[in-house]
Amino acid sequence: MNRTSLRPGGRLLDQLREHIRYRHYSLRTEEAYVHWVRAFIRWSGLRHPRELGGAEVERFLQHLAVEKKLAASSHRQALSALLFLYREVLGLNLPWMSQIGRPAAKPRVPTVLSQGEVGRLLHVMEGETALLGRLLYGTGMRLTEGLRLRVKDVDFERRVIIVRAGKGDKDRLVMLPQSLCTSLKQQIARAHALWVADRTGGNHGVELPDALGRKYPRAGESWAWFWIFPASTLSTDPRSGVIRRHHMHEKRMQRAMQTAVQAAQIHKQASVHTLRHSFATHALQSGTDIRTVQSLLGHADVATTMIYTHVLALQSSSVVSPLDTLCSLS
């Protein structure tokens, strides 16, 4: 077989993007898959993946694990990207593709803040990020789910929030904390001012899910679809190249969280996702049944939610350390 060379950003990666978008995968997944396929092509000396096979894929993954010291989760993502390339883009389904092992996920105990720590953390946060932090802790939403909230998704009368296309592309309902209603209405009023400015300036509407955007091309200009946490400036859509209003960038919230963790003198590896872990633990602690918590978190399997019961079990355990027994006798 003649050796075929590729440019790292050539036609194959364009085909990869097309197949990913056809399946409505997220932009984050697209960026990750393109990254790993490009890395594989470069590692192989720009050879076309059709000329390579299971042996080369395994050596590439070994290179990532041993030389690059890649985490198991990234290792699995790289393998998923290459399998997607071979199956969906190149149309191959060879025996070796089902024989490559994936590194096992190691169970990790989530970092959970006490209610006092959450209170200190939220107290030192300011502005929109403070409201978003309270919303994430008060509902258990993921960061991306909170950032993507639209005006139409908040029902103040029923005090519920509809989380659209969460993990696994599923919708779910979460509670709207009563204590946030006034602040959230004020945030929506600020968002409305930006929406009016966009309409007056003739700017493009916000991004819509693909099918809706094609069926109702003007819907993105409507107030109902506007972001609750819009970005302060316009930006270029990385897929379409259209300049429009996006939602607040996740890095802004992540930076605000890290600043607040230090200001609140919390000496734990806490991230924005820690608010979700803390919500689940505190909800179970207050007597909410595990099936309800599973539904609120959007977990497909209750076993995923069970990790929080393990955290609680240790906290409320009646097991006494032998050291404490020894000290009480002295």
Rank of each mutant, 00 (worst) to 15 (best):
H249P: 02
Q186M: 10
A197E: 12
P217T: 01
G241V: 08
S179Y: 05
S232K: 08
A211R: 14
P217E: 03
V242Y: 00
S179L: 07
A211S: 15
M253L: 14
Q187K: 03
S240E: 04
V242L: 04
A191C: 09
R199Q: 13
I188S: 09
A263M: 13
H247N: 08
A189I: 03
L234C: 03
S183K: 02
W227H: 06
T236K: 10
M257A: 11
D210E: 14
R214S: 14
Q262C: 11
L194E: 12
Q258V: 13
G213S: 10
F229G: 01
A191Y: 04
A264V: 11
E221Q: 11
G241M: 06
A193R: 14
H249M: 01
T259I: 09
T200I: 15
M253K: 00
T259Y: 06
E250H: 09
S240F: 03
R255I: 12
A219G: 03
W225K: 00
K215H: 05
R199E: 11
H192P: 02
R218A: 14
T259E: 15
G220V: 05
E250I: 02
R245I: 04
Q258M: 15
M248V: 08
C181F: 02
A224M: 04
P238M: 05
D237F: 01
T182A: 15
I228M: 01
F229W: 00
L184N: 04
P209A: 10
R239E: 08
R239F: 01
A231T: 05
A219H: 08
L208K: 00
G205I: 12
P217Y: 02
R199N: 04
L212D: 10
I228V: 15
D210R: 12
A191E: 11
Q187S: 07
G241A: 08
K251V: 13
V242G: 00
E207H: 12
F229N: 01
K251Q: 13
L212W: 13
Q186I: 04
R245F: 00
